[in-house]
Design a protein around this nucleic acid. Structure first.
Lengths: 215, 215
DNA sequence: ATGTCTTTGTGAACGCGTGCACAAAGATGA
DNA sequence: TCATCTTTGTGCACGCGTTCACAAAGACAT
């Protein structure tokens, strides 16, 4: 039986072994003292806890460049996601296959959600279309939304929204780049607060990097 | 002079006003006691600290769906980013305009970096091409890389890499979705693939989210 | 001027997560 | 069976960030 010790895993992941063990203890996945963790069992438990063993049908609304990129993205299938449908408001797109999946018109949105039992929706529309699309998704039964449109969506309680802003990561890089370049010019550090839509993750400080700026 | 109090800002952002004031004090941007913060001055200070007042030329390598989506993304310009060049390995793409910018061939990568003084590169290539492209970018002088390819890049010290995995956000949504769905419906998941007879089939304390999963 | 009122800036307390250290548990060999 | 060794699971303490609470500072009215 192939096993790993918390020490090995911690070294590989660059974290503390005690924390790793404590986290594992949450899962109820018990290792064997004197031996370590059964690799196969551990992988299964973590996969299950993260939802990787389930099949999650998702719809992508807005099949522009970004929507098409998402439809083609290979990483989804291996994480338990299945693109149940592609939806676009442009009638000219209807029927045209993207990533092997025929695009359907927005008119059928509710029907598609219902028939496929979709609870997760991805919005890749222009900013102006995002909120109306969001409202229809929610009304049709979607309870989790991944928003790529540059708008803050408002949703009723019980619905999760995560916003992906492609420029934020760039901004973080630029922030560090600025510090690389100008250590001698300005000796001041700072921070700023940005309105958060709903529980965005932020990490602790790295040296004297402000708390709101992810490391 | 239009002003805002830390209390107003904190309420709007959903954070604690004391923390906000403490963060602002890092900037050295002084508010006025009894009045609040001068909005215009505050905006400028934060913009400057975050690097928004600078002009950051970036190159995007790999003009597929995702690269094109990034090139078209409107949020960059307003954050101080300027797409200096689009680069692709496909000779058929060369000269073809995307988002108004003509695509250039990978052969000229070093020249483009050098002539435009680019220090930030975006990689939107297939996984296999990412590391070679990364190496060339670094060799040409790029010190910050935003990686959309599903690969872990290795870079020398002094170079920052941020990896964007489009499926991670979805996975976080699915994780929460799984918890919404209920704790009784997962009996079926255990029977199929589990390496059986491990006794303890129940998951741990059901109340809390494991520390390793972002909120 | 002087007093009152508002809001900042910050020292200090609090709470929480992380890491340490160790007892308990099981493996292994004599 | 007993001793020894390895590694887990976790109580406890420490450190750090967040929050509280208040003195200081400036605006404004009298």
């Amino acid at each position: 039986m192939p096993t790993v010790s918390s020490e090995e895993l911690a070294a590989a992941a660059g974290v503390n072994s005690a924390k790793l063990r404590k986290d594992f203890s949450y899962l109820g996945s018990y290792g064997t003292r004197g031996v370590g963790y059964d690799v196969e069992y551990l992988v299964y438990q973590i996969s299950r806890e993260l939802g990787l063993t389930q099949d999650w049908p998702v719809v992508i609304v807005g099949i522009g460049n970004l929507g098409a990129a998402l439809a083609n993205y290979g990483g989804f299938a291996s994480r338990g996601f299945r693109v149940a449908a592609l939806i676009d408001a442009d009638p000219a797109m209807a029927g045209k296959p993207v990533a092997g999946i025929p695009v359907q018109h927005t008119d059928d949105l509710e029907k598609i959600i219902d028939e496929n039992g979709v609870s997760i929706g991805v919005i890749a529309t222009p900013a102006g279309a995002a909120q109306p699309v969001c409202d229809r998704l929610v009304a049709a039964g979607v309870t989790s939304i991944l928003n790529f449109a540059p708008t803050v969506l408002s949703v009723p309680d019980g619905v999760d929204v995560r916003k992906v802003d492609l420029s934020i990561e760039l901004q973080i890089l630029a922030f560090h780049e600025q510090r690389k370049a100008g250590e001698e010019a300005e000796a001041q550090a700072g921070a700023a607060a940005a309105p958060a839509e709903r529980g965005n993750d932020d990490k602790g400080p790295d040296g004297d990097v402000p708390a709101v700026m992810p490391a």
